[in-house]
């Protein structure tokens, strides 16, 4: 998607926290020198075009008692499609990526309890017959998932 200067500035701004204001789009518009109506129209357009996948609160699963964990599997290439279907079928699998490495499948588990991670990983191992490596975060160097458009 080709974005003009204003939409680029808007998408960069919107990756940071929205002000807690009953008219948040008007507040962001004032920062960027555009109208509330224009802010809403541009976000709507970027959502429809898929440039923004989601707009709203980002919840912390850990703060709600849940857990996230990055996991990886070495999947033989001839079994890749079959294993992908089996793994994606678990509702606890939030994201799944194919990567160019012997460890070819990388997914994030999101569960409602910390114990759910090991339990789900074990069920995926039983289902696929392949070992699941778990890479829980030990330390986060957080900056806010920002990219410059």
């Amino acid at each position: 998607m080709m974005l003009d200067e204003t939409s680029r500035a808007l998408i960069n701004r919107l990756q940071d926290d929205l002000p807690m204001d009953s008219r948040p789009f008007a507040a962001v518009g004032r920062e960027l020198g555009i109208s509330e109506e224009d802010v809403i129209a541009r976000i709507t357009e970027m959502k429809e075009a898929g440039a923004i996948t989601r707009f709203g609160p980002f919840f912390d699963a850990a703060a709600m008692g849940g857990a996230f964990c990055l996991c990886a599997m070495e999947v033989p290439s001839e079994r890749f499609e079959e294993v992908m279907i089996e793994v994606n079928d678990f509702p606890e699998v939030a994201h799944n990526y194919e990567r160019d490495h012997a460890l070819s499948m990388w997914f994030v588990l999101a569960t409602e309890t910390p114990e759910g991670i090991a339990d789900t990983a074990a069920r995926i191992e039983r289902k696929t017959g392949l070992p699941v490596l778990c890479f829980p975060k030990l330390q986060e160097f957080f900056i806010g998932f920002r990219v410059t458009a």
Binding site: I11, P24, F55, F58, F59, D60
Partner: peptide
Amino acid sequence: IRRIAAAP
């Protein structure tokens, strides 16, 4: 809630 924002 960590923040209210857009996921690009």
